[in-house]
Design a protein around this nucleic acid. Sequence first.
DNA 1: CAAAAGTGTGTACGTCTGTACATCACCGAC
DNA 2: GTCGGTGATGTACAGACGTACACACTTTTG
Lengths: 188, 188
Amino acid sequence: MAGRRQVANDPDRKDRIVAAALEVIVDHGVHKTTHRLIAERADVPLGSLTYYFDGLAAILEAAFRRLSSTMSVHYRQVLSAATTRAEACEAVAELICGTGYATPREMTALFEMYAYGNHDDAVRALGRDWLLVSRESLAVHFSEATCRALDALIEGWPMHRNFEGAPLDRELVLATVRAVVDRLEGEE
Amino acid sequence: MAGRRQVANDPDRKDRIVAAALEVIVDHGVHKTTHRLIAERADVPLGSLTYYFDGLAAILEAAFRRLSSTMSVHYRQVLSAATTRAEACEAVAELICGTGYATPREMTALFEMYAYGNHDDAVRALGRDWLLVSRESLAVHFSEATCRALDALIEGWPMHRNFEGAPLDRELVLATVRAVVDRLEGEE
DNA sequence: CAAAAGTGTGTACGTCTGTACATCACCGAC
DNA sequence: GTCGGTGATGTACAGACGTACACACTTTTG
């Protein structure tokens, strides 16, 4: 009978590969992401990639999984810290305007994920999950209808910031959020 | 002196290539878009692509230019048909929920464009232009601040529809649009 | 100790890629 | 007719790609 399994020499090597893959995706785009670029970035031999992963698609899926996981955490943190409706509105504005969620690099990665998800079932599922997570975080404070509307704002507005390059007008964002919340939830 | 220039055998061949490129992008994603796939789809010889375009990047740029042009037209049509504020709100809801703007295939193409734009300056500029066009179309009916908020909704909401697969709740969309407009423009 | 088993790596291979370019088909000028 | 000259194409090629796999190394087993 086989005894205790041996321990990997470098247990977090797999994680390093995934992290490196995400960086390559952000810097070059999925369309120019290759085994060799990732291996170089992660400082591991080329063979490691095929040893730990079943092809490039598996690496990309792991990278995007990491991305959505990272963002979900911050997303939930910001929203769960709010206790009143007013605070929740400010939290939403913070998500839209702030630099914590959706840094420029994360936005780039998110675009790549959305685009790639349309051609890869596993990543598409990841996108759906991410949608549900964000909606659940909002659902603590708002009705389902309001969640859908706010979610659209949270996704759409940072996209514009990404193209314009200029920071968003926080007052305007907050006013819009409050307008939606007041209307759909009923004033106060 | 050289006489009249000869006429191309197939003057709209270049257009066919661009159209085919966009289809390949939608079906396979930019990351799997190749000269050969495009040529096959357009039913032109491989050599035509290098004859008409300076590399794959140029083809992709032309394809995305075609996309944003197509969408701009419909976008403007829907918005310019409105004469009152109420009609303009319904036009915005139509853009978000309707099947004319942002068919599933167009949404996929748009994702590819946004993702690719982060790695190609020409396409990035295209994204900025598209942003300005949509904002100008809205500016006919609304203030600049309102345009920004509505634009975020118009971009963000169809993204969700894309992932959920289910059609949007038109009543909810319309109510949200009105909420934003009423608050930012002042009630009536 | 030797042997076996498992972990990790460097290299080599077949395929596919973008692109250059010699070549062809066609048309107007003479 | 012959002869450029231009639009267009099929092919060939160098390089990059994903991936398989023989091999080396380390640890456990006997």
